[in-house]
Design a protein around this nucleic acid. Structure first.
Lengths: 112, 112
DNA sequence: TTAGTATATTCGATCTATCGAATATACGCA
DNA sequence: TGCGTATATTCGATAGATCGAATATACTAA
């Protein structure tokens, strides 16, 4: 059981482990949005957004409701926003390390 | 910058997105431990543990110090424990969904 | 120096994630 | 019915993560 609980947690973390999905959660923190509006705000491909939304749906992180032609998404539990806020504090507490890590991320991005 | 911050957060979440690494953090929450002791507690391969520790080290999530033959690991910032605790509350809040999800995880595990 | 113990790294195989392009579905309106 | 718009799914290519086996490194003690 302990192991299954860890798999569950790992699964939730996995679903947060992508910049686009974090951006989606941040977009939803102030209320529900239609998929199209999210897409516009993030400036990504329609299919790509839909894939990320499918991941968040499958992990029960977002709720969705259809209204006519559109699908509105919302956060199921604001505690995840709380986690993101904690991460910001964490980031600030480790700013010099974070800066170094960001440098590495940026360097990798440039190399590719 | 906003994007880099999201990459940083995603990177941290990625490093938490594995049951073994969650188990490591839980083991360390009460204080530092030698790698060997962690290995014994988790019951996994030595190389495998070392690989997971390398990931946690590279993301600055754990600190390590050598003492003679051994390497002692500890959490760099208790805020991550806080995050794990929040996840436990999250888990409880979504217990029925979680149960379903665990069922799916277990089913997949059985199929493979 | 040699042997033994603790930990880290490298390698290759396998599995999982991500992307854009193409296509499918579902709805509203003429 | 047929067309346009919004969203979802499938596909194939590429990149990244994970594992155990083998090997390397670092330290201790004889």
């Amino acid at each position: 059981m302990q192991n299954l609980l860890r798999e569950y947690k790992a699964d939730i973390f996995q679903s947060l482990a992508h910049p686009t999905r974090i951006a989606i959660l941040e977009a939803l923190r102030d209320g529900e949005m239609a998929a199209g509006a999210i897409q516009e705000q993030l400036g990504i491909e329609q299919a790509n957004l839909s894939q990320h939304l499918a991941i968040l749906r499958s992990r029960q992180i977002v709720a969705h409701r259809k209204e006519g032609n559109q699908v509105f998404y919302s956060l199921r539990n604001p505690v995840l926003v709380e986690v993101l806020d904690i991460m910001r504090r964490y980031f600030q507490a480790h700013l010099s390390e974070a800066r170094q890590m960001l440098g590495e991320i940026a360097a990798e991005a440039r190399t590719r």
